[in-house]
Write a protein that binds this DNA or RNA. Structure first.
Lengths: 231, 231
DNA sequence: ATAATAGTGTCTCTTAGACAATATTTC
DNA sequence: GAAATATTGTCTAAGAGACACTATTAT
């Protein structure tokens, strides 16, 4: 295989969460060229003896100091335009990660420059490399995954109410949903959520039942966005 | 970036077509170790100054000699387990390609060892590297894409009948479909197929209208597998 | 005429969305 | 009690599958 070009392989992770009713992404202020002071997705080089998923998990931990006990992590796609990094030829395997709301990343670590940004405040110009494209693809993927996978529960704390789950859909999709119909759909989907039997007061009004994540990996039946608008 | 590990980046392409009422995949008999005489997916190294999609297209052409004027080509996912290739650390960006039925690949080229194999005759043991996994993922992706994208038409010649399109669904999904309902769904989906106005006799019976691919990139509404079996 | 396939009509059942109605809290 | 939110009930319309029916060809 001597003579063949070898290339730097990185992972970049789009970490999404919801804070204060808005979708946020974790980004890092770059301290060095290229793209000094621009924002970048957390990521880094894949080690020589490391699986891609493992690399993503490691970088997420190193660069953010987040507790990533159960994080939703899935491969998004791979970006390899020849000049996407002006320093050298790199190919980046991008990941989508979803977390429940977290405290601000800890200072004093690699994560010092890490910050949560509302996705809709990040104009493409502010992001380094091709990270604006990666972010856009990730958000689109997340929107789609909500229909067929129990991704929404990953945005929630360990125990949550149906209304909180609905807020996830509403925020990520950017549209409001009928509480009554949503409730029925979620509880009908097999193993999406499991009732804890307990209730809890969140705000005013009747207290809601608490649920936790069920074992499903797919939603049956799916919870679809209304696509009839485009017909 | 000196000091960081550099890695070989390859593309591997799962080329699917339908021949004689069965789903086939293009594979290449390996002539050298590792995995001598085992079957492998067409693919190769990404050049230093080449986009990933371009590399996939180039390899497809070089290794198969196929006319790839309009081929369906989409990135599948990236495989990077540390020891997936015993010679060196490689990361492979896998692609799914779909073609209309083609003549047997030409001899005398790189494609000499290329052959179409029925997918269901390829036991995982016969495939080199992690290509059995890649193939399985690709077939699963294709099955899913049929629901939401006009992928089925890529399996057909330039002009085709609704019945031919239905056979694609039936073969890839492995289940039979109601001709009447299928006809309605396909013609209702916007810009999936466009009538040529002409008709053609294919076999006995009333001649069928000929269609060609429409401009849609998504199917509205989708053509769903009946998922009620799993409810 | 009979067989075969293309394409349309129609019936029934399920599901989605709209929204009324009830339940259980806080103020 | 009034307001707020949770949860259930019900109505209606659209879509899916089943299948009867018509259309157009070969034999």
């Amino acid at each position: 295989m001597a003579g063949y070009p070898s290339i730097f392989v990185t992972v970049d992770i789009v970490v999404l969460t919801i804070r204060g009713e808005r979708l946020h992404v974790l980004s890092i202020r770059r301290g060095e060229p290229p793209y000094v002071r621009r924002l970048a997705l957390p990521g880094g080089f894949v080690d020589q003896d490391e699986d891609l998923d493992t690399a993503a998990r490691r970088e997420l931990n190193e660069e953010t100091g987040l507790d990533i006990g159960d994080v939703w992590l899935e491969q998004l796609r791979t970006y390899g335009a020849p000049r996407r990094d002006p320093r050298a030829r790199t190919v980046s395997v991008a990941y989508l990660a979803v977390l429940a709301d977290q405290p601000e990343p800890e200072a004093g670590t690699d994560a010092a420059a890490a910050r949560w940004w509302p996705v809709d405040e990040l104009s493409p110009k502010r992001l380094a490399f091709d990270h604006a494209t990666i972010l856009a693809d990730a958000v689109e993927r997340a929107r789609g995954r909500l229909e067929y996978a129990p991704l929404a529960a990953a945005f929630c704390a360990d125990e949550f109410t149906i209304a909180e789950l609905r807020r996830v859909y509403e925020i990520v999709w950017g549209r409001s949903l009928e509480p009554a119909n949503f409730h029925r759909k979620v509880t009908r989907a097999r193993d999406f959520v499991v009732s804890t039997g307990r209730r809890e007061q969140r705000g005013s009004g009747r207290p809601a039942r608490l649920y936790r994540r069920g074992g499903a990996t797919q939603l049956h039946p799916p919870i679809l966005r209304d696509t009839s608008l485009s017909s």
